[in-house]
Each structure stands twice: as C-alpha cells, then as structure tokens.
C-alpha cells in the first residue's frame, strides 16, 4: 500500500470532501482528481467505510438505577467492599459459633464476637455511605439530579 498520492494531491482534501467541509470549488477539484486517480479513489472508499463503521457503532449506557447504585469515590468503594468482605464471613462465623455454643450451653463468647465484629463491619459500611453523602453535599444542584 503506497502512502502518498502518486500525483502529489493533498489527501487531507479527501477527508474534508468526505465530511462535506469543502467549498464548491475544492469539491469540484477533488471530484475531478478522484476520477483520474485510483490510489485516491481507494483511499476515499476505505475512509468512507471506516467512517460509516464508526458512525453506526452503538454503545450501551448505564441505566438510572445503575447510576444511583454507584459508589461516588474510590475510597468509599474500598470501604464498602472491605465492609462486605468482613460482614459476610462474620455472619457465617457467628451463626456457626452460635449453633455450637447453643449446643454447649455457653453465651459469653458469642456476645463478644457479635459486639466487636458487628461494630467493625457496620462502621466500614457506614463510612462508605458517609463518604458518598459528603461528596454529594458539595453541590446542591447535583444532589437533586442524582437522587
């Protein structure tokens, strides 16, 4: 594939011709050149196909619900994930332990685990939500739109 027009034609005009951005005189000049130059005709056809492919490419956009559920900052997302990672095994562990202790008839350890584990997981989730709220509070208008 040759890079340049063998007749030395300014190929940028072909791009502008494709986009309808030329004056009538320049358009006529490009038309006449395309009739005589197979190199530029091939270039024009390729660019036209590429532009059409780009113009018809559709991209999905998140729904309103997805926007509302998004964490607002990286820090809030980290805290939220950490909170959930702590909360899930904590619930599993507490339930297992509670069953075990219930079978044995002792409750002191369960109360300790529930207190400290629950507070840690709850605090992280709360911190995550708080960070989002603080960010929303920066602008009133934005908060009204997002909610």
């Amino acid at each position: 594939m040759r890079d340049r027009c063998p007749m030395g034609f300014d190929e940028r005009l072909i791009t502008a011709f494709l986009d309808g951005e030329l004056t009538q005189a320049d358009e006529q000049k490009v038309r006449l050149h395309l009739e005589r130059c197979p190199h530029c005709r091939a270039l024009y056809e390729d660019l036209r196909r590429i532009r059409n492919a780009a113009m018809t490419t559709g991209l999905p956009v998140p729904s309103d619900e997805e926007w509302d559920e998004r964490p607002r900052t990286g820090a809030s997302l980290t805290f939220r994930l950490l909170g959930w990672w702590l909360a899930i095994p904590w619930v599993i562990f507490v339930l297992g332990y509670a069953l075990w202790e219930a079978w044995r008839g002792s409750q002191g350890a369960i109360v300790r685990i529930m207190t400290f584990g629950g507070i840690a997981a709850g605090a992280l989730l709360l911190l995550s939500a708080l960070l989002d709220r603080l960010r929303d509070l920066k602008t009133d208008r934005y908060r009204r739109i997002m909610k």
Binding site: R12, I14, A16, D46, I50
Partner: peptide
C-alpha cells in the same frame, strides 16, 4: 482539526488493513 482527523483516519485505515 482537518490534518489531525486525516492523519488519525490514515492510522485507523492502516490498522484495519
């Protein structure tokens, strides 16, 4: 704008080929 657009399209064309 016209020059960058043309240059960019040429690069895309090369990649497509």
């Amino acid at each position: 704008v016209m020059s960058r657009l043309h240059r960019g399209r040429l690069m895309v064309r090369q990649a497509v080929h």
